[in-house]
Write a protein that binds this DNA or RNA. Structure first.
Lengths: 220, 220
DNA sequence: CGGACAGGCGAACGATCGTTCGGTCGGGCG
DNA sequence: CGCCCGACCGAACGATCGTTCGCCTGTCCG
């Protein structure tokens, strides 16, 4: 990191609890994970120093180590939260009842909601490069999730519920890519979550195009 | 980088030209940029050391500096190549003739082709965090490109060429996200480029769903 | 009142980072 | 031949990294 640092937004330090000091649980582990995930996403995991993290929490680097085992432990905690959210969707009853297409659409819609609810943690998950054992573990779990989606797309295609002439393997990738790309631009509060869910669902399954005025297909 | 390194694939060093040494232009700048872009993508820019880069080129770190100004210069060169490819699409005649929808579809299809042709460089561009001045410059240029897409989506929507009830701003983001997500999984040779282009186009504009057997809309 | 203790701090550790420097080697050319 | 110069290298630079250590300070409990 010889490079000049980004502007380092105002009040970044203010993330610390507003307790006027010297009251009991100043920093609980889970709130520190949240702070860490946010800074990891701003700078990238590798470019984030423990100094950056402790400063964002409002204490010095050495104090920070009283609450946290290390940098990689913070990463793992954040990634677990993301993965728990995603796999939780697969465990819902609606994820395994009905036609493949019905289940797929339900999972996609819920996946969008989890992405928004756990935005920093899922963002972190989607940007891993696999440099440490922790990262490779999380990437493997993420691949399992994607594989579940891919299986559903394949089943829906086999059941004739998807457009003809498409490659289910490619479409599964594109579908995941479409959903996951949310983390690159969505910020809470800009648009309501249910509107976002509807927009993603319609684009993925119905496309952007206006319906043809006089459909040539299946003329009767 | 305290973490254990990824397996470091076989023959990574073999990227160096097979010249049996001591012949003239052993390493030209542009091939080194290519090597660097590849390693940057594998490890992430910040996690990549000059040692990693020089080893991938087959020479020592100090020798590497005879061919290259520095780490950030390599990044800039790679990013320029990506941006030149993308903006080149906007300059094509077909990008400014015809209806907004026609122009949009052409740009999207060409954008996919550029992504594939310049896969490592565009991948690098899409993963920037903005830690250095070079990164922030490239991110700004990338935003200009995305803004051009967003403008076309808005125009197509205003012309009634897109499905009703959609938010053009959101759809532009989703469309870019869909296309850009290619860099996360596409590898050359797996599927032909034109098949990929067709698949992206159909998913984005027509959706995954099979057409309804008896269309209720516009019954005559 | 006193000792335990958690929270916080400055200073320092070994490692690794990007970069520089001085020097060796060997083919091309006057 | 002798000189030059580009390719290459080992060693070292200051900076910064993640992590540890010893110490101080207030608070709570017995």
């Amino acid at each position: 990191m010889t490079g000049t640092r980004p502007p380092a937004r105002e009040g970044e330090r203010a993330a610390a609890p507003a307790r006027d000091r010297r009251t009991r649980p100043t920093y609980d582990p889970s709130s520190l994970v949240e702070v860490a995930a946010r800074v990891f996403n701003e700078r990238g995991y590798d470019a984030t120093s423990m100094e950056d993290l402790s400063a964002a929490a409002g204490i010095t680097k050495s104090s920070f180590y009283h609450h946290v085992r290390g940098k990689e432990a913070l990463l793992r905690a954040a990634l677990e939260r993301a993965l728990d959210g995603l796999f939780g969707v697969l465990d819902e009853p609606a994820a395994s009842t009905g036609s493949p297409l019905t289940r797929l659409r339900h999972i996609v819609r819920r996946q969008v909601e989890v992405l928004v609810a756990e935005l920093p943690h899922v963002t972190l998950l989607l940007r891993l490069r696999g440099n440490t054992e922790t990262e490779r573990w999380a990437m493997a779990r993420r691949r399992e999730f994607d594989a579940a989606i891919a299986r559903l797309v394949r089943d829906a295609s086999a059941a004739g519920e998807l457009r003809d002439g498409l490659d289910p393997a490619v479409d599964a990738r594109l579908l995941s890519g479409l959903v996951n790309s949310l983390v690159e631009w969505y910020r809470p509060g800009r648009i309501p979550v249910d509107a976002l869910v509807a927009e993603v669902d319609r684009m993925a399954f119905e496309g952007l195009l206006a319906p043809a005025p006089a459909p040539k297909r299946r003329p009767f």
